[in-house]
Design a protein around this nucleic acid. Structure first.
Lengths: 247, 247
DNA sequence: ACAAAAGTGTTTCTCATACACCCATGT
DNA sequence: ACATGGGTGTATGAGAAACACTTTTGT
């Protein structure tokens, strides 16, 4: 970056390859237990026991990790992820993780709004599958992708409790019920038992501060019952609650 | 790790170098504002503006990141860090961070108990300095070490609030006052105004669960005032509070 | 004896949870 | 009409914060 305070006495011959892998999460309509889903790629190399892998690519010479991760989503899954929430998770680089060369993979997590799903696609020879987090085929994952998934799941579970990333998984406009359902799907189905009354009280602070804006309309009624008021999130992606949410 | 589901169609020529850098924190006696300190290496290459750097080394062929990080602490600062708390922070690998080659550095944070400081040392040509976090020379840091420090500081500040890592910075036996002071030094000096009464009530849960054990003795009296009861932490390093601490 | 630091117990107030009741929509 | 889901307001209980008072040390 700025100077050469280090490495002056060593060779600069490259010794490793850099890769990125992405754990993509989304929320889909359906039963709470299956709503939170992750994207896996089913490979065509059927001779091995590893049927599933995370989307990943090798990092190119002049490419940032962020750029490589978004390219992986494009190349491996056919998604245009240029405006998705993306954050670095951790780097996996055990000397033995790949037998052919030292490969360090910088794992990321990405959050896709379920209504972006219009584009679902099929990429030459591989197929893209959304799997509920509750039923991940842990034993059929390539490389150390199981460890990446475990860490990614923990990261998201923890982070929705004190930051505003949850809104990156919701559509632009949503009801309190949808917000509660999103929370329940990721953290704990028990949250579904919370009354809308208490939800509003908790999120009332955000409404006062203008982070949640009530759009002047009601949602489309679906099925029986009164449709809920619609809200729009207008705060910074990186924002946090003053206090951690109680559940 | 397990098979070859990927990379089958690309060359495996190494293109990058792997490094580790470590942000080492400790707590030292003294005024609250200067108690939380970080380790910086003052380099001898005085021609450049970057006077300070984090301890770091290149990762060797058969070395884990964890191993390389502990070696960096040994080689660059003369510490035996084999039993220190060490965790991966993030990987910094901008294509332009080093002009000579693509170097990806896996940053770590390490926590040193201040009473381990017996070993303080001097390594050939470089000098090890403990700098209060409040007075880091941001403009005199090599590479992207300023970014690493910023992230490291945020990580620790956040993590002491919901995990038990704070105890990794305290001596094996400590008083409630020392615990409060440690918290105050990292999070907010305001915490110093909390009464010991309220502290005990908050940590009372931990005492009941046996995570904090009251050693049957009082601390050495220093100066005026009654010495505090001594406690010992006996929980898992990775433990978390049921609820986030209120401050 | 007094100041300073630590321990114990009580009071107050905030806020999470629970509950009772009203509103809107589809069958 | 009634069942179902959403919204409003109130009551209850847990716990954080504040405070008054006692205990132990050094000067």
């Amino acid at each position: 970056m700025r100077d050469m305070t280090r490495l002056h006495d060593v060779t600069l011959t490259p010794t490793a390859l850099l890769a990125v892998d992405v754990v993509v999460f989304t929320l889909r309509p359906g039963p709470v237990e299956q709503s939170w889903q992750v994207l896996l790629i089913r490979g065509q190399e059927s001779e091995s026991s590893a049927q599933y892998a995370l989307p990943g690519v090798l990092v190119e010479e002049d490419e940032t990790f962020d750029g490589a991760a978004r390219r992986a989503l494009s190349v491996k899954a056919g998604f245009d992820a240029h405006d998705w929430y993306l954050e670095q998770l951790a780097t996996f680089g055990s000397p033995t993780r790949d037998t052919r060369a030292r490969v360090a993979s910088v794992a990321h997590i990405a959050l896709m709004r379920s209504d972006d799903l219009v584009q679902q696609s099929m990429v030459a020879g591989t197929s893209v599958e959304w799997i509920p987090v509750a039923s991940i085929p842990w034993d059929a994952l390539a490389f150390d992708h199981a460890a990446m998934l475990r860490e990614g799941i923990q990261r998201v579970k923890g982070k929705i409790r004190y930051t505003w990333v949850l809104f990156q998984l919701l559509p632009p406009v949503f009801t309190m019920s949808e917000l509660r359902a999103a929370y329940a799907a990721i953290r704990d189905p028990e949250v579904m038992h919370l009354s809308t009354s208490n939800m509003r009280k908790l999120f009332g602070r955000l409404i006062e501060r203008g982070v949640l804006v009530q759009v002047g309309e009601r949602a489309q009624a679906k099925g029986r019952g009164r449709p809920g008021d619609l809200f729009r999130f207008s705060g910074p992606v990186t924002g946090t609650w003053a206090r951690e949410l109680p559940w």
